[in-house]
Design a protein around this nucleic acid. Sequence first.
DNA 1: AAATAATGTGTTAGATTTACACATTAAATA
DNA 2: TATTTAATGTGTAAATCTAACACATTATTT
Lengths: 246, 246
Amino acid sequence: MLSVSESEHIKAEKTLHTIQSEVQSTNKIALSVDCVIFGFDEDKLKVMLIRSDLKKYHGKWSLLGDLVKPNEDLDAAAYRILKQRTGLNDVYLEQVHTFGSITRHPAGRVVTVAYCSLINVQHHKLKITDNELHWHDVKNVTDLAFDHQEIFDSCYHRLQKRIQEHPLGFNLLPKKFSLRDLQNLYEAILDVKMDRRNFRKKFFTMDFLIDIDEMEQNVPHRPGKLYKFNYEKYEKNKKKWVGIDF
Amino acid sequence: MLSVSESEHIKAEKTLHTIQSEVQSTNKIALSVDCVIFGFDEDKLKVMLIRSDLKKYHGKWSLLGDLVKPNEDLDAAAYRILKQRTGLNDVYLEQVHTFGSITRHPAGRVVTVAYCSLINVQHHKLKITDNELHWHDVKNVTDLAFDHQEIFDSCYHRLQKRIQEHPLGFNLLPKKFSLRDLQNLYEAILDVKMDRRNFRKKFFTMDFLIDIDEMEQNVPHRPGKLYKFNYEKYEKNKKKWVGIDF
DNA sequence: AAATAATGTGTTAGATTTACACATTAAATA
DNA sequence: TATTTAATGTGTAAATCTAACACATTATTT
């Protein structure tokens, strides 16, 4: 259908006219956005899923997504979905990967751009009353609809990697948090146990935590100090990574 | 045009029928693939560019790309472009990012998936005779057509990051290379100078280089030893990253 | 035969990482 | 009110990794 340079010889770049006719021809590929929305609750990493209504995937869980509108930027589409589903406006959002296998969607050719989002579960609460929308412990996420398992896996791995190199994690925590909260977060995301003393040393040495001189309330043990993350200081002092290691 | 869940209330997942009608409706988004093809020649990092034929971008250089065909996987489209332009089949290819700004293409809504590719310049040579297709020193890449500068930058940054964590670099070198070649490669990509002794120690300690007991030929100085990269050993001993650092 | 220009190697100081133990505090309990 | 409990909060020493640095060796060129 598309009159693209399928010929053997390599020709120069297409003319505007050629492209325009291609763009306006039929048989196009549909484009969607899927969001992997992570939350952190009760010291567990969670992901927001919705039940699929497609017969083919009856009863299976799937990611939150929608088609991209003709006049909508990709990021805008992702933010729209987040707003719809969580009611939240300013959330961490990162494009991760685009999935375009021909057979990935039963309705036809739908290419989807996957986004990873981190939200503070205490900030939304409301919109989750819908019975088909639920937080799932990431440890129990298996067998999602479509190719959503693969999409979820890619976003989870991206999160695991990036949280070690950038201060994303704070998006999942309340503004004020204890060092124990922070460590629980890292342990949940990376699925490892860490030494409490070395963990603290690490973050104190980085020097991006602000001691706000408050203590935990209503904990059944000695309360810990609360901290905020100093984004400004971090932005100023960002590292220039150089170090070969594989 | 698309009857998507724009309404305020959040409804359950769309039915297959709804999606199908959306997919088949008009006013679709066109999808393309753009390849940032890197090469390493004369100790410089190069990128393959072609002259744009669009009037709007007359004389400017652009990346190599094409529309994705309705029955073509994204990766397959990228491989097709690489085959067309370089004649090479088995090359390093990695999807990097998808660019979908509404205004990015003068012909209409074209969303493009950017790929980063690494090739050994000694393996192709032939197909580059076309006068509109050239290798460019990455240091001189500015002011590309469309949003290709942004796409190029994102792929270059990705390359800089990944080469420090994974053994990609060897795709840019001949199978047999000297440690000087390897260091020149890293210095060119990262745009830094490194200590020769520490660089060697680093790679010898990693223990993924095979001493093939051959020497450089026809060099105007003491010849260095040649090595191969041991992919098998690397695959077996891959690291499990854990280390917070930002 | 001497000069040149690269390869090839080792050591040391400093920084970072890891492993590990005990005093402190507030809440809960007796 | 005193004791127990379960967490927080801190320090040190060994091992590893990083960074800085200098000299002998080898093949080519002059």
